[in-house]
Amino acid sequence: MFPANFDYYRAGSLAEAVDLLQKNPGAKVLAGGHSLVPAMKLRVAGPSALVDIGRIADLKGISLANGQLTIGALTTHAEVANSPLVKDNCGVLAQAAGQIGDQMIRNRGTIGGSLAHADPAADYPTVIRAVGAMITVFGPNGLRMINADSFFTDLFSTALADGEIITSVTVAAQDASTRGSYYKIPHPASGYAVVGACAIVSQADGVCSSVSVTVGGATANPVRCAGVESALIGKAANEANIAAAAAKTDESVNATMGDQYASSEYRNHLAAVAVKRALMAASA
């Protein structure tokens, strides 16, 4: 299988990449290519040109400064999964990255590419929303930051404007009182999430002082489960309280995704199961 023909440009810098995107209106950005190239081979995507940002050094690397963990857009899933800096400061990101695809896919796929692609069955969007990340993008009007809560706008759609490229993802470093966990129920063949839940729990004086819960895979974009969160705040993170909170998942998750493998009713059921398991792991 081959993609339809396209023009190829390798950008040497971010500015050059944005310039190339503006000069080629039908162009798409190529990072690791592990969402885009398969889509092009299946001919569900047919960009007239690709702007390859894969060699722009500024977009690589992981750093910690002023309590903020910043991950460059070109950082691969394997690099995030294995990074001591990520494990120590936002462990759930490393845990989730290690569950994406397989070792070969993790060596090529990038965090920026995954977020820009906004696949409803992807893992990163769910986690990025739960940890309250900020996504930095660069475009014709310069740099701007987009809150993860408003980044995903629909199926495979984001708040990125024409000519904009994700440069990095920033999350606040978590302290020792905070733990997170991502629980994925993968499709057995593809490994994509049928449903995935991410829970971030901070505990103080034996009770949950803050809780963040998101569910992906059931809907076009991951959703925040406010009912679950408020049910657990101020309570001890024990199994009974977690089960009672997880039972409120259906207040927020109303599955719109459904296929011959997993109906929307089944995904609604799995959502509550995944939320409970993610909360249990984040409270252990």
């Binding site: 299988m1 190829y8 398969p38 390859d52 070792q103 070969m104 896919i105 063949a189 593809s190």
Partner: peptide, 27 residues
């Protein structure tokens, strides 16, 4: 499979295992 799933096309690129059906030669 030619769809990034089966791994039959795995090679090492600069020491990293990758699925060569999902990498462009220009990359």
């Amino acid at each position: 499979c030619d769809t990034s799933q089966c791994g039959a096309c795995t090679v090492h690129v600069d020491g990293q295992a990758v699925k060569s059906c999902t990498v462009l030669a220009v990359q």
